[in-house]
Design a protein around this nucleic acid. Sequence first.
RNA 1: CGGGGUGUAGCGUAGCCCGGUAUCGCGCCACAUUUGGGAUGUGGAGGUCGUAGGUUCGAAUCCUGCCACCCCGACCA
Length: 489
Amino acid sequence: MSKGLPKRSEDYSLWYNELVKKAGLAENSAVRGCMVIKPYGYAIWERMQRVLDDMFKATGHSNAYFPLFIPKSYLSREADHVEGFAKECAVVTHYRLKATEDGVTVDPDAKLEEELIVRPTSETIIWSTYKSWVQSYRDLPLLVNQWANVVRWEMRTRLFLRTAEFLWQEGHTAHATAEEAIAETKQMMEVYAEFAEKYIALPVVRGVKTPKERFAGALDTYCIEGLMQDGKALQAGTSHFLGQNFAKAFDVKFATKDGGLEYVWGTSWGVSTRLMGALVMAHSDDEGLVLPPKLAPIQVVIVPIYKGEEQLAQISEKVLKLKKELEAKGISVKYDNRDTERPGFKFAEWELKGVPVRVAIGNRDLENGTAEVARRDTKEKSTQQFDSLTDYIPALLDEIQENIYSKAFNFREEHTTKVDTYEEFKEVLETKGGFVLAHWDGTSETEERIKEETKATIRCIALESPEEDGVDMLTGKPSKQRVYFAKAY
RNA sequence: CGGGGUGUAGCGUAGCCCGGUAUCGCGCCACAUUUGGGAUGUGGAGGUCGUAGGUUCGAAUCCUGCCACCCCGACCA
């Protein structure tokens, strides 16, 4: 492990890339654009999965699994959908290799009759399946989720934020009425928002995408948008109301109570390993990761400070008891008793890895019945009575979780600016970044022009934002509501 | 996919312009002394110089193709 991380203030991108690698979250692989998620990074993802999965189950969803490969013809069934994904699909054309002098080559005789697409998302294969699952209103609603990998052949990739292959979950539901499907869409957006705020400790704006930004094939795309420390926005989750688009494309109809035959209404929603990027960029600092306790694979690390076997034995005895007590309270504890590293090195290493709480115990503490407790978020150190730790640490973890949330919340508040003129708009984007609240005339033309001139896009039309009469900062046309602009990931 | 940059030991690098078999730091291994914020000393191991070809008596160095990564654009979660 080499020491030192680039400073956020000097090169934010480099800081992010180095941090992800040095903290042991992920690294680039032999395959262009694809990453290896390392054990420590995957442990965080597993925690996210577990929490989200419980939330999905609690809202009535069940998991299932659909194939990685999608017949090429399926993609073309829904016009907008094809257009959205066609440019970034991996295609399987053959099913066999044959040996040659210098290795293997694709066997030209083993050409697939119909080529297969590696799923960029699963709407088409799932809706083609739903056709046979749905006949009657009694089969509805259909509430299914799958945890899977998907492939989008991206030209420019970054660890977690945009990779050619990524892990995600995609929920796909079918309903008897539009109202119910819309309620589902909003509900799942709210599940995501709650997850982001309570677990990632990332405050998010709940909103609707503009037609230009919404999912290909959807009638409406709801989203949650977070703000990163460099002032750029990051879309952390999306939930789509698909209307009857896919039902029509795949002929999914149901018999209604009164004997009619209607197309079902659909939704789809997903979050991906991109959340890992959000987690890193929302809280971490120049010393390394800062993990919210609720997602940290290791919540407490205990470092012994000793001279000789005898002292270590004495310390270990007390520490192992403490470890057990904390674990009984559901806290994950690592006792770093490696004899090969010195305490200072361990401190730095666990800070890099973002462990929320560190406890150090040395000879002095043994004599005094104390321990040194350091919190990662503020780097404050304090001396506590050893016997109080089983109560002190759980409370401290809660406090850290809250503190990093409010820090992120305050940052967002400070970096959300209302502007009324285009000059101001450009100035804010250049000098301070963040969300910019401005009036917009509702046309894609204006949106496009602003994007071209400033690189900023409309992140969303916030659900909670009040109606307010105003005029578009660019065209002067009337507007009833401010929308969120930002430069985005 | 377009423009720019980079690729030398596990990591970070010097050398490249001006061709002669590779520098330094961290890390690694051994031993000793150490251990309350990234230890110190001594000794040691580790290299197809991204890759394939070309020029040359000789290539890390010059030329060409390819690959990967980074930055900027277009596209996108």
